[in-house]
Amino acid sequence: MKSNSAIKVGVLGFGGLGQAAARILTPKQEMIWVGAADLKGYAYCETGLDPDQAIATYYQQGSIGYLDPEGTLSNYSIQELIENSAIDGYFLALPNLPNTFMADVAKQFIASGWQGVLVDALKRTSAVEQLLTLQPELEAAGITYLTGCGATPGLLTAAAVVAAQSYAEIHQVKITFGVGIANWEAYRATIREDIAHLPGFDVEKAKAMSDAEVEAFLDQTNGILTLENMEHADDIMLELAGICPRDRVMVGGVVDTRNPKKPLSTNVQVTGRTFEGKISTHTFTLGDETSMAANVCGPAFGYLKAGMALRDRGIYGLFTAAEIMPKFVH
Rank of each mutant, 00 (worst) to 15 (best):
V119K: 00
H282V: 14
A121F: 08
G277P: 14
A306F: 05
A140F: 09
G113M: 13
G10H: 08
A294S: 15
T190D: 14
I224S: 04
T72L: 03
V161W: 04
V329Y: 01
S5K: 13
A37F: 01
V270Y: 06
G89Q: 05
L122M: 15
E239G: 06
A151V: 08
D288T: 05
P326I: 03
S265I: 02
I195T: 06
I7V: 05
Y59T: 00
D235W: 09
L39K: 08
A163H: 06
L227K: 01
T281N: 09
A93F: 05
S5M: 07
T157C: 07
M230A: 11
P326Q: 04
D194F: 12
H171P: 01
K262L: 12
R246S: 14
L146Y: 02
S126I: 12
L264G: 01
L132I: 13
R313Y: 03
A56H: 11
H197A: 10
E323S: 12
A196Q: 06
L39G: 00
M292W: 04
G252N: 09
T190I: 10
D211P: 06
T226V: 08
V254H: 11
V173I: 15
P98L: 08
E83Y: 06
V128Y: 14
A321W: 03
L92A: 05
P245F: 00
I32L: 10
L25C: 01
I170A: 13
I143N: 06
V128R: 05
H282T: 13
V251S: 12
I181E: 05
L156R: 07
V255H: 03
L304C: 00
Q29L: 04
E239I: 08
Y66P: 00
D202M: 11
A6Q: 05
T57G: 06
G253L: 06
I315V: 07
Q135H: 14
R258C: 07
A189L: 05
G314A: 01
P260F: 10
V11Q: 02
A20S: 15
Q135V: 08
G89Y: 01
S291Q: 04
C45Q: 12
A6T: 05
I175Y: 09
Q172V: 09
I82D: 04
F284E: 09
H171R: 14
N4P: 08
A186W: 06
L238T: 13
K207Q: 15
E228K: 06
F177G: 07
K261E: 15
Q135K: 15
M292D: 02
C149F: 00
A103G: 13
I195N: 10
G287Q: 14
A300T: 00
V296A: 04
T283V: 15
G148P: 03
R311W: 00
G65I: 01
G223C: 05
Q135T: 15
I7M: 03
N267L: 12
I315T: 05
S280K: 12
H171N: 13
A158R: 14
A93W: 04
V162D: 10
Y316N: 09
T133Q: 13
V161C: 12
G252K: 10
